[in-house]
């Protein structure tokens, strides 16, 4: 409750600050109450959304002395010998992860939705969702165990695939798939539940009509449910694509756990981290962050403006 007084003050100052504008703009009446309610949020949005973005832009286009640097920082980071390998790593990871995500999430959602027994369907969804509790570092640690043939619960399977030691599992060629599996394990359940919710929203009349017309379960899934899910699949794809470009914690921990068999500049975000904290080059770090931020912004912008998912009815 100690939070209340300063917040109230903030609200008061924010609304007071807004008040003079009213005289010029609005015809009459007091300040719209809406401003008071959004003031704190607007303040946070300014402090942790807009200002840092602008500051990153500023840093990316200046040199350490503060002078205008043009695109020098971008030329520098893109010319860095570590940049393109990192782009390639992240791209490979995204291709594997997104393909797997779309195919398996849609398939599993359709199958779970077709399960008629209520408790079975609920239990399945909960079991699939459960790994979502282990996000971030916890899930990576757990997978370190699973991928280490000496301790793994599936060591038989690993040996069958020709992996006899942890180092063999995390050879560079395997890493995109390894990261994709970890990301799928933690994230897929949430998407399955969301797809399931979207399937529930498809009118039963449509399904019933198709059934009367002689369509079987598979035909209904392919010809009716799948097209109606398209928007949600696109949503999942865009969100996952944007999140995937940010790859950090998985390679970071794996690098630590493998004595740098996995390099600590494997992904773009790690490279930005290296620039900021190993080379003390904030301008270079800002340039990489800005590239990633622009990619994320473009994706989300396209989705907000074209997706039509968030229109108010």
């Amino acid at each position: 409750m100690t939070l209340a007084p300063p917040s109230d003050q903030l609200a008061a100052t924010a609304s007071r600050r807004g008040r003079p504008a009213r005289g010029s703009g609005r015809a009459s009446g007091r300040l719209p109450i809406g401003y008071v309610f959004v003031s704190l949020y607007a303040l946070l949005a300014l402090a942790f959304g807009i200002v840092p973005s602008l500051y990153a832009v500023l840093l990316a286009f200046t040199n350490p002395a503060g002078g205008f640097a043009g695109v020098d920082n971008f030329v520098k980071v893109i010319g860095d010998f570590r940049f393109w390998p990192a782009v390639l790593h992240v791209t490979l990871y995204l291709v594997i992860w997104l393909t797997g995500l779309v195919i398996f999430v849609v398939a599993l959602a359709l199958i779970v939705h077709a399960v008629r027994v209520r408790w079975a369907s609920t239990t399945l969804r909960f079991l699939y969702y459960l790994p979502g509790a282990l996000a971030g570092a916890s899930s990576v640690l757990l997978w370190l165990f699973v991928l280490d043939p000496t301790a793994s619960p599936v060591s038989g399977l690993l040996r069958l695939m020709g992996f006899n030691s942890f180092v063999q599992v995390i050879q560079p060629g395997n890493l995109p798939a390894v990261f994709a599996i970890i990301a799928f394990w933690t994230g897929a359940g949430g998407w399955i539940v969301i797809m399931y919710g979207a399937l529930n929203n498809i009118s039963t009349d449509v399904i019933e009509a198709a059934r009367i017309d002689g369509a079987n379960t598979v035909q209904i899934a392919l010809r009716i449910q799948l097209p109606m899910l398209r928007k949600w699949v696109a949503y999942m794809g865009v969100m996952s694509l944007a999140a995937g470009t940010q790859l950090f914690v998985e390679p970071q921990l794996l690098s630590q756990a493998s004595n740098a068999v996995v390099p600590n500049d494997y992904s773009l975000n790690q490279l930005a981290y290296q620039y900021a904290f190993q080379q003390n080059d904030f301008n270079g770090a800002a340039a990489i962050s800005l590239i990633l931020l622009v990619v994320a912004l473009l994706l989300s912008w396209v989705f907000v403006t074209r997706g039509g998912l968030f229109e108010r009815e």
Binding site: A56, A242, F248, A276, A285, A296
Partner: peptide, 15 residues
């Protein structure tokens, strides 16, 4: 909301 949470972390750090 659609930007991944990590995208703004380094800029916020710099700020």
């Amino acid at each position: 909301m659609l930007i991944p949470g990590t995208a703004l972390v380094l800029p916020i750090f710099l700020e």
